[in-house]
């Protein structure tokens, strides 16, 4: 076990903290409040177009810190391996963790490894926790969203969910949808630097997609959040796959795309800022907040009529016809 940890894990994620192999990482003091988060990754399949469990585990936690208004500082990594997982797959996933951590420049300072009997896990599970430094003043949060505030989405939606679904179910779509798995820390920092307190809230639109974020924010703000279907960016591949399967892309998970609410006067600057960052170059303004009228979240459909946009119920299940 020590050999496995040293040769396959520590060697790949080479940081001073890990090489010491102490029971805990001792970190230097940080000034001001901290943000602390954790997330577990159980994606199946482990590798899919546009990403894999390794990069997902790094970006997922980094993004949770970034959208909370924190600068990510440190990560931990727990690895749960199902007996029988080929070493090549473990290596590939860990290489991806290392590459992703390098890309965002955040060290992995502590970790844990467990091997469980066959059937007790699905190949490989990863958990990451992250600590970040809260940069003040940060976004005041969804409760501060006011009428006329503008809603942006930072790229074409639904890519991660459709990539994983089509890989898992062998849907053989051509070309296959590609996950948007990517870090959002640069985009969050750029917004903070350029727009400051004009940013009301940021949230990565993971499970439940953009719709889930909008419903949470509508509840927190007591407003109606209204978007325009024609303004929501969706790639032709994802749109085609969703049309085929009867799934609304607004309900599909993303892993490198966030929803941002900004004050009306900051909207143009925010859009410009996001479009200048590679990960959010496809950003678009998709709607705005208005005083509560009828439904909490509404969408203007193609024919121009405003309709309620409902919350997704459970995992999207494919329709029959």
């Amino acid at each position: 076990m020590r050999k496995l940890i040293r040769e396959r894990i520590v060697a790949r994620l080479d940081t001073g903290w890990l090489r010491e192999m102490h029971d805990a990482a001792r970190l230097p003091p940080v000034e001001g409040p901290l943000a602390f988060t954790t997330d577990s990754f159980v994606v199946s399949p482990l590798f899919f177009p546009g990403g894999d469990i390794g990069s997902l585990a790094v970006y997922g936690t980094v993004n949770d810190l970034a959208v909370s208004g924190a600068e990510p500082l440190y990560l931990t990594l727990s690895v749960i391996i199902e007996e029988g997982l080929p070493f090549a797959m473990l290596d590939r996933a860990l290489d991806s963790v290392a590459r992703a951590a390098n890309r965002v420049g955040i060290p992995i300072v502590a970790g844990d490894t467990k091997v469980v009997p066959r059937g007790a896990a699905d190949g490989l599970f990863l958990n990451t926790a992250g600590i970040g430094r809260v940069i003040e003043p940060g976004p005041a949060g969804p409760g501060s969203i006011a009428p006329d505030d503008v809603l942006l989405v930072t790229g074409p939606i639904g890519r991660h969910g459709m990539a994983v679904l089509s890989a898992r179910e062998g849907l053989a779509l051509e070309p296959s949808p590609t996950s948007d798995s990517a870090p959002l820390a640069d985009a969050a920092k750029a917004l903070r630097d350029r727009i400051g307190t004009g940013v009301r809230a940021m949230r990565d639109a993971t499970r439940g997609g953009v719709t889930a974020v909008l419903h949470e924010w509508a509840e927190a703000s007591g407003l109606t959040l209204s978007i325009d279907e024609c303004d929501v960016p969706v790639s032709p591949v994802v749109r085609g796959a969703c049309e085929l399967l009867g799934i609304d892309p607004l309900h599909v998970a993303n892993e490198g795309t966030m929803v941002v609410a900004v004050a009306a006067e900051s909207a143009a600057g925010a859009l410009d800022t996001l479009r200048g960052i590679p990960e959010t170059a496809g950003a678009a303004i998709m709607g705005r907040a208005v005083r509560r009228r009828g439904a909490a979240v509404t969408i203007r459909r193609a024919l121009g009529r405003e309709q309620p946009l409902d919350e997704p119920a459970g995992a999207p299940l494919p329709r029959i016809c």
Partner: peptide, 20 residues
């Protein structure tokens, strides 16, 4: 229940909360 069902369609596009 079904995405195709008439009640689900009304719930989705004409939800009771929107009637107010």
């Amino acid at each position: 229940v079904s995405a195709e069902g008439a009640c689900a369609a009304y719930f989705r596009y004409r939800p009771p909360s929107a009637a107010s």
